[in-house]
Amino acid sequence: MITLMIRGIIIYAIVFLIFRLMGKRQLGQLQPFEFVITLIIADLATIPMAEINIPIVHGIVPLVTISIIHFLIGFLSRKSIKLRKMFNGKPIIVVSPNGVDYEELKRLNMDFDDLTEALRENNYFSLDQIQYAIIETNGQLTVLPNAENSPLAYGDLKNKKEESALPIMLVCDGKKIKENMERAKVDDEFLFDNMKKVGAFKIKEVLIFTLDNNGKIYIQARNKKYKSFKVNFKGGENW
């Protein structure tokens, strides 16, 4: 039983490492070859985990080999547009201002039911609401609606608005994040000056402290209500 436990830990660690090396894309939208690899990895990992007679390398070697192949395919796809098209395919326009391209639908092995279902999933219930519909390489449908049905954006109101800024964490759960402090070009004095405003005098007392490029601070001390305010901030790098 201990052997099974240790094998489980080893296999899990290797699969975890493999997925980390493969990058975030693996966990998000999958390309066809990535989908294949995900299925295979799951199967390969279970073979030696449950069967003591089978050497653990019978699972590890194919796993690692497949990961290397996956990395190579990804690498070659990045370097060559031709190879990228070969491995991933290309996005296909199935609906254009001229209407539905039925030939493309047939080539994609789709029918009208599939198309309208995918449109409904994108919250479009009529074909005349959309300008373009594109089947992406991962099989998802993306839609460009026509002007009448486009969602309203802030820019349409023609009002001036401060540029959005991404907050970064300077203190998290009572610990300073030095890397972010360097990025924001702030020091301990800055932290303590603003901590006092929420009644915190030690870093340990702060639950969360974020700062964005516009100088907006969000700070919450333990067991206290948060405060959000703006300060005179010179700004760090564009993070």
């Binding site: 090396l21 070697v61 690692v64 080999t65 290397i68 990395f71």
Partner: peptide, 18 residues
């Protein structure tokens, strides 16, 4: 870094299997 890691792992794997 990733490329080097992959190359090292590939070399180790190849050596081990041979």
């Amino acid at each position: 870094k990733k490329i080097i890691s992959v190359l090292v792992i590939s070399a180790m794997l190849l050596t081990a299997v041979i």
